[in-house]
Design a binder for these strands. Sequence first.
DNA 1: AATAAAACATACCAACCGGTCTGTTTGCGT
DNA 2: ACGCAAACAGACCGGTTGGTATGTTTTATT
Lengths: 208, 208
Amino acid sequence: MSEALARRTQQQRSESTKALLLEATLDLIAAMGWANASTAAICERAGVSRGAQTHHFPAKTDLLIAAIKRNTSRFDEEFEQRTGLDGSPRLPLDEYLDLLWQGSQQPGFLECWIEALVAARTDPDLRERVADIDARAIGAMKEQSARTDAAVTPDSDLYDLIELTIYLLRGMALQRGVHASEANQKRLFELWSALVRNHLDQNNRDPG
Amino acid sequence: MSEALARRTQQQRSESTKALLLEATLDLIAAMGWANASTAAICERAGVSRGAQTHHFPAKTDLLIAAIKRNTSRFDEEFEQRTGLDGSPRLPLDEYLDLLWQGSQQPGFLECWIEALVAARTDPDLRERVADIDARAIGAMKEQSARTDAAVTPDSDLYDLIELTIYLLRGMALQRGVHASEANQKRLFELWSALVRNHLDQNNRDPG
DNA sequence: AATAAAACATACCAACCGGTCTGTTTGCGT
DNA sequence: ACGCAAACAGACCGGTTGGTATGTTTTATT
């Protein structure tokens, strides 16, 4: 029958099942936590055999690393697009902070990230690799913030405030795991944003 | 031989082994994470038989709940002492924020708390109970903050700022799990403290 | 077409986990 | 002193997990 359709390159087959596995992994981490996401469950969800999984990801930790890399790069690219790279007008800091907020509200995104951080803390095989991915992600967000209109003076506290914001959003996501409190958190984050803006306005007034 | 020493009340025996188990539980959660802390390992660490553990804590989740209750109440009491209840002079907000910081630096404290929050997210048996303990702990800290010199007007943002601070400290602790960055975080927290003070000073100027 | 290699499928296994069950010791009430 | 219940100890078990080992199919190479 449809031989032409079934015929795929090795690379195509490989990347296809890899993608299925990683999506299933992220889904299950978000739904039941990394500790409860068994390789068997991931394979079933992905519609892939256990052998295929072990072929592409010999150890379970390989699965987690690849999954959170996918998780971060996906949002990283979206953020890069939104902040823009060329001579477009600078994004107002307000909007960038709101962008961070929206990113933190993406279902499963921070949940997976937190699960990875927690798992990595007590797993020597994970710790270094997760720490590296994490550092890159934070660095990327700091660079993005430098493309907003808040990047007035080189010695401002902008990077520190971005780092604080990231920590805050993670702490909030942690809380949402057990408490449904989105409206309240939105309100709190707006207060946070106001404090950040106010601080930068005060310290960067008349930069020259 | 020393019968008088070996002779103990049932209640004494019970509370003694309970305490041993809970301490061992907290130690292991901090050291290897909740998911990797097996009941057998906890019993071995506590020097208690498996039968004794199941007698006092039939399910593993009972162990976690009791352990984090102990975890929070321990620090809660310390905070209550420090903030004082009677007519003593009001604690400066600066010092209270520093108290929160010091609490967040206590080895194992936030690590266990975060493990509990993460485990509770995907465990129906834990979620409600952990959420309840968490809500009480946050409420207690808000009440303590009301005893500082920052509690000027009833409609200030003090409670919101305390809640933000708690989320921030948790996000920071999450980060410390994979990155050794205490000095940097101390610096960041002082920046945040400055923002909080500044905001409250601005909004509560000339209250009456 | 033949050979090799990558992709995939299935069975298997040793280790571990948490809960249950049975038996023993210790303290308490009478 | 006696009986009972709580505290404790150890054995046991079904279920699950992640990794491995072996066999089959699909693509690539020559």
